[in-house]
């Protein structure tokens, strides 16, 4: 039986038709849920690599449909949305991703004789850890600091994609969209009836009952 989690039965999407969601919110979240799964910026091989990296950075339970992290990043790059700044030696976002993925794959092949996506998890983690610490600097990086790529580009885009998804909001008990209704109860341990109830002291049943009525 799958772990019911900290917020059993809570689904932020149940509020979609309540005063917590305005039209604009419904429109943008609907579009996100319908993000094309086929890449429009990445190649198929790059897409598989991004999926493999995301599985290490934001691992997901198999008991529910996964957040399509790679597809959300592909969508962002396809549309050309950028952060608005980059560090020294950093190319712009599309180029940074292309080059970073190629360089990571080259490191994987040089060290382990196989592409990154085909490595076992611990070897993938070790490479990612080296990248995070700035320890990868093969010619394929083209002078782009691997640490900056990890922090400013890759990790950021991955967590931003994951936590843009309602599944992730439900998982951490976030109230999600809240316009125009907002909230009334603001103090410690104060929960509005349209917020997630947490399973505390091992009592998932009570939280589950409350979460069924969130809306």
């Amino acid at each position: 039986m799958p772990d019911p989690g900290r917020y059993p039965g809570y689904d932020v999407l149940r509020k979609r038709h309540t005063p917590s969601w305005n039209d604009k919110t419904r429109q943008v979240v609907d579009a996100r849920l319908a993000v094309p799964r086929e890449p429009r910026f990445f190649t198929g091989q790059e897409m598989a690599m991004v999926t493999a990296i995301a599985d290490r950075l934001v691992p997901q339970p198999r008991s529910r449909p996964p957040v399509p992290v790679a597809a959300l990043i592909d969508d962002k790059l396809h549309k050309g949305h950028e952060d608005g700044f980059r560090g020294d030696g950093m190319p712009r976002e599309r180029e940074a991703w292309r080059r970073g993925l190629a360089a990571l794959d080259a490191e994987a092949r040089a060290r382990h004789g196989a592409g990154f996506a085909g490595l076992p998890g611990p070897q993938q983690d070790a490479l990612l850890k080296r990248m995070e610490q700035g320890g990868l600097s093969g010619p394929a990086w083209g002078g782009m600091p691997s640490k900056t790529f990890f922090k400013q580009r890759m990790a950021k885009d991955i967590v931003f994609a994951y936590y843009a998804h309602p599944t992730a909001w439900s998982e951490i008990g976030f109230g999600g969209p809240a316009s125009p209704r907002g909230y009334v109860r603001l103090g410690y341990d104060e929960r509005d009836p349209w917020e997630a109830a947490e399973a505390r002291d091992g009592d998932a049943g009570d939280a589950q009952r409350k979460n069924r009525n969130v809306g």
Binding site: W21, A164, P177
Partner: peptide, 11 residues
Amino acid sequence: EDFASDEAEQS
């Protein structure tokens, strides 16, 4: 009309 309750959209 233009503002969603959504971090990503509001970038």
